[in-house]
Design a protein around this nucleic acid. Sequence first.
RNA 1: GGGCGGUUAGCUCAGUUGGUUUAGAGCACCUGCCUUACAAGCAGGGGGUCACAGGUUCGAGUCCUGUACCGCCCACCA
Length: 1041
Amino acid sequence: MTTTTEIPNRFDFAAATDRIYQMWVDGGYFHAEPDSDKQPFTIVIPPPNVTGALHLGHALNNTLQDILIRMKRMQGFNTLWMPGTDHAGIATQARVEKRLKEEEGKTRHDLGRENLVARIWEWKDQYESRILGQLKQMGCSCDWERTRFTLDDICARAVRHFFYDLFQKQFIFRGKRLVNWDTYLQTAVSDDEVFSKSVKGNFWHLKYPVIDPKPGEPEFVIVATTRPETMLGDTAVAVHPDPARALDKAKLELEEKLAKSSESEKEALQSQLQDLETRRAEMLPSLELLRDMANDGRKIRLPLLDREMPMVIDTWAKPELGSGCVKITPAHDPNDYEVGKRAGLEMINVMNPNGTMNVEAGPYESLTLKECRKKVVADLDELGLLDQTEEREIELPHSDRSKTPIEPYLADQWFVRMEELAQSAIDAVDDGRVKIFPTRYAKGYVDWLSEKRDWPVSRQLWWGHQIPVWSMPCDDAEIEQEFMDKIKALPAFDTSSSSIQIEPCSEPDEAKRKKLELPYSTIHVCIRDEGAELESQLEAIGLVRQQDVLDTWFSSALWPHSTLGWPDKTAELDYFYKTSTLITSRDIITLWVARMVLAGLNNMGEVPFDEVFIHPKILDGYGETMSKTKGNGIDPIDVINKFGPDALRYSMCHLTTDTQDVRMPIQFECPHCNEKIDQTKKNRELPVVECIHCKKSFSTQWAEKPDEIALPRGASVSERFENGRNFTNKLWNASRFAMMNLDGYSAEPIDEAQLLLEDRWILSRLATVSKNATQALEQYHYGEAVRLLYEFAWDDFCSFYVEILKDRFAGEGRAVAQRLMAFTLDAILRLLHPIMPFVTEEIWQLLGQFAPERGFGETEAAAKSLMIASWPNLPDKWIDAEIESQFKQFQLALTALRDIRARQNVDRNTEVDFVVRCDAVTVKMLEPMKPYFASMGKGNLTEIGDQPEIPKINATVPVGAVEIFVDLNGLIDVSAEIARLEKEETRLQGMIAGSEKKLSNASFVDRAPADVVEKVRETLASNKEQLSATQNAITELQQMN
RNA sequence: GGGCGGUUAGCUCAGUUGGUUUAGAGCACCUGCCUUACAAGCAGGGGGUCACAGGUUCGAGUCCUGUACCGCCCACCA
């Protein structure tokens, strides 16, 4: 049994959190089993990547999930929060490879596939445990017994079943596509993993000779490029079919823009228009000539490689730009690729996967791209074929993972055909089976899916789910048939778990195909089950497994059902699927949310979740997103260490308004002198920072080298967490006070007749707040919920109710006061528990020792843990708007009394007399509060009524229809009081002017609702009265002066 | 270029269907308090022409249009 003197006046979260968390774990409260008697409520965690530790964005994401889960658990739902992590294929492999290079100077090829993957598993184990540890420190109530990893056996099985299903539905296919090639990681990356960056570059204008020009025709065409090395893969030059029309159209567009433009843009547009007109006048004949040459079948000679190329006609060529001619490199440019497909051009890949030139580059073979560029430019220059070179800023696509430039590259890739799948996911949102909050995010989801672009799913990586397909290239139809027969004859071949596709050669022309050494066709066999006998039987007859792994999102897409055991029909899957809510960040709505919906529909025939809540993003003090590369992140553990997990959670909740992004200015805390140093764009990425106050150095979260790590660590913090910590402490101390006054607490029932005004007030407020806060949380209005609860706990409960009770504890109302205080505190703890689980649980345990039975009508024993206590559901009949508004009068009157005291510099211990002038109803309300005026305002209410005797020397404050006159005989500071009154006078005059203006407006009086007009009249009258009283008081005081 | 947000106190943000709020909170600031739950606290105070310009309305921070600036997403830039 704890005695109250043993309760310290600070909540020692550092000492308590592990103990409390362990108690929850031991109680088995996190674990959920199917139970047909209860309604399920399920959330699957957005699995954090095992690339690194969690940052503040994760803290936000997971806090919001835990709040919802904890509330639903208390509401009686059978709650499951499914935890886990994501293998994050390319990101993780890139990090491990980078470290391998830095620390050992080795590449992945030095290690080999098996060894590298083993290394990544080590990395994964390390970070997974760190991540799960962070979640636990935050208080997350996940069902840890069910922890999954997107690359574990259960998920792997789901992936193979999904892939197999798509394969046999013909939704999976392999094809040559232009992909974003990362020459560093040597893999294709998806569009989503590419960012564009402005770099300094050149714009080279090249001269390509025309073969046998007719008289009058030019000898050269001029083309421009930013990547001259790719000219080795050029297979055509394109011109526009109707330059005149194209120029007219461009002009029209420009004019439209000009009409809508602002002053600042006008000049630039004018000059553009001018240029266009000049161009039309000067160049149209030559542009049309080029078009005619193309029509006439004129050919171009590609310099350096001496290749003959056609001139093709395509609208991709823009007559308004450059020479109007554009070189076409189908294998290395997305637009050219489209032109090439339209015109049936040869697609010549001149690059090796590692970023060197291949055999197609002729004399340039095996040069790196950079070397090749230099040599090509030099060679062209020597031949006099370099027209000019411009310097220019170029937007260059970069790989998000390796930060190296992306090379568009023609490669064999596996795709998922999206037509039907995408449509199913669109329908699910359109018809409301999946609701996205805030609703505006549904548009982006639908728009993105509507493009129905095929999903490239293969990655040339080693870390991930290897594609379960065994392949065999065939040189001709006979061989193809032979192998088909062989495969079908294999003992383990079974059409219910294996499926065959024949991929015809992408090159239909047989001569070309042979020249390029391409197979006639490729047989692909997809095997559903891991380790099936068929695998080795196929390998025995010569088929080889695809080396590529699947896009990470392919496995994440299955998360809501794979984690529950799919494809098995487990009891869990049956009970917990579909899940209830998904809480995630907006940047993965398309990548992840959309794909989960379509995968869920495909595999389960049902959407994966009812609702999706998109939460805000936390930005730094400069409005930039927090990221590792910028170095502006905050480690949630820093926050927890300094402010405690409850403060972290409170703050996360507080800033979750209607998906308004939120700025968080960051400071370093110097470990030497504890001073704060603002984080700037300069210092934020440094491993070591020198304190501007004490000049000593400390390390930051980016410290890596031994000498850096040896320095004391300076945490990244933000003062925005202080409010949460203070609130935690306020709650702690209010509870401490409560327990100090629970001596002799008894659970004897009390009836309503024993309730005083303030009791009915606090119960009314409690009922109102719990109802509104519950509603707010259920609608994902976290910020609003926490604000309601904060105000109730701090302002209503601590500042008024507890203060009032102090008096009653001393008197005969003690027993009732104790019951009500315990009851109210009990409810506050329940309501705040989802947001601040640790401090509330700790108080709950202590309170249980002093007041084990709670309630004031019927009592019940407090639950063993607050986590499993029931959610407050208070009767609506407790809500009494009248009492709430009456009590407001008391609060205002008290503030007025205190205001006068403060301005008059009345000593804290000096009691003042005061009278109140008000109507009979208010008398009934305020008279019982007399002792509280005395205890809370050191004011002695001597008279109250409609015509009290006003003290001669007084300070007066009007509070609505109530006036307070404080007797200042012997106390008055005249000039201070005059100053106060004059301020009041100004305020009243302003309000009166406002009201009069309204009322003098005939249409307001006529048109506004009668009650609104009446209200204004009442306000005006009362203000006028108050004004004249104030002015009288001023006059009187001035005479005294 | 297309789409979506934002702009309210020194800072970070609230402000629910337009009407008692001549706009609120936390932090910061000023004054006074170690009052026996809490100085991470208590009491009081100062501080905003709600980005700008129009419009609708009896009435606009709130609705509409336009402008400026900031941010995000998508597309594209030989």
